[in-house]
């Protein structure tokens, strides 16, 4: 299971990287969201999978609770990042009239 999920995370990272390299703002933003997913999976995997029960006292020998706490924080922050970049993208589009990164370079003399 661990190896399988690690490879899945690798696939997600590859896809995210390709999206981040594209010149369309929406693709870049989706890329960051996918990268977040991959990070969550890998944190889970490293602590070992399905080694116990849910991390609640009285439910038996629990799995490692620390990665879960880290991921919970990360999920909410990931949402904030997506929100801010989306708004940044559409405000840029409103002001400049394009969402293509190669057209957003501006004039070198400015």
């Amino acid at each position: 299971m661990e190896t399988l999920v690690t490879i899945l995370a690798g696939v997600l990272v590859t896809v995210a990287t390709y999206l981040l390299l594209s010149k369309n703002l929406i693709r870049v933003i989706i890329g960051t969201a996918i990268l977040t997913h991959a990070a969550h999976l890998i944190i889970m995997v490293v602590s070992g999978l399905k080694t116990g029960s849910v991390p609640i006292v009285g439910e038996g020998d629990p799995v490692d609770p620390l990665p879960q706490a880290l991921i919970l924080t990360s999920i909410v922050i990931g949402f904030a990042v997506t929100a801010v970049s989306l708004v940044l993208a559409y405000r840029t589009y409103q002001e400049v009239g394009t969402d293509k990164l190669d057209e957003l370079r501006g004039d070198p003399d400015e």
Partner: peptide, 12 residues
């Protein structure tokens, strides 16, 4: 406090 849930989930 004692089972799944909490501030983040509740708020969301």
């Amino acid at each position: 406090h004692n089972s799944p849930g909490g501030g983040f989930s509740g708020g969301l």
